[in-house]
């Protein structure tokens, strides 16, 4: 492929898909926007270097998402894997869900996602944010459909428990809500 044709196609791809890749990466990194940008840059570079293979992929979108997930897992596989520190939210920050500010809902989502192993996080992002089927998710993660289902169930259970804990009703002594 001529370099200029690859460059033109690559630029078009970036214009059309970068935003979605960044959104996916932000969810995969549980809200770490700097890391998400790093992963997207790594992924785009990998796609460019293998542009011929990427162009011929049966499912280019799946190819790109798989590359992004692998970049996340490789990032987590750095020499020392750190234990995830979780801080208990002070009781006075917990509010009834339907009255909580959207930014706090997002914060609770990211905190819950951060406690999941990368692959479980990826299963939830692929199944719920991208609305992929079990089979499509399994293909992206190079695992079986059974693994996708079992991992999704475990991840949802953990996510639900953590978010419920963070968003359950709790009031200050005077019953005031926090904005």
């Amino acid at each position: 492929m001529r370099a200029s044709t690859r460059d033109e196609e690559f630029l078009t791809f970036v214009r059309e898909h970068r935003t979605e890749l960044v959104r996916t990466a932000v969810l995969l990194t549980a809200g770490d926007r700097d890391l998400a940008e790093d992963l997207v840059q790594t992924t785009l570079t990998q796609l460019y270097v293998r542009w011929d293979s990427f162009r011929q992929a049966r499912n280019p979108g799946g190819y790109a998402r798989r590359s992004l997930v692998n970049a996340l897992i490789d990032e987590k596989r750095r020499p020392w894997r750190r234990e995830q520190a979780t801080d208990e939210l002070p009781e006075d920050t917990v509010l009834p869900f339907d009255q909580i500010d959207s930014s706090l809902r997002t914060e609770a989502l990211y905190a819950a996602l951060a406690e999941l192993p990368p692959r479980q996080r990826a299963v939830l992002v692929l199944r719920y944010f991208h609305d992929l089927s079990v089979e499509e998710t399994a293909e992206t993660l190079s695992c079986s459909g059974g693994t996708v289902k079992s991992q999704a169930k475990r991840a949802l259970d953990k996510l639900r428990a953590r978010m419920t804990e963070q968003l359950s009703p709790s009031y200050r002594g005077n019953g005031a809500y926090h904005a």
Binding site: R15, V22, L124
Partner: peptide, 28 residues
């Protein structure tokens, strides 16, 4: 969960992305 995720990343838009030429330069 779908709604929560979409809400979380709703502020990430095309206009906020760096110029595609920067990605191309890095990749090249």
């Amino acid at each position: 969960l779908r709604d929560l995720m979409n809400e979380a990343v709703a502020d990430i838009t095309t206009t906020g992305q760096p110029a595609p030429e920067l990605d191309l330069a890095r990749a090249r």
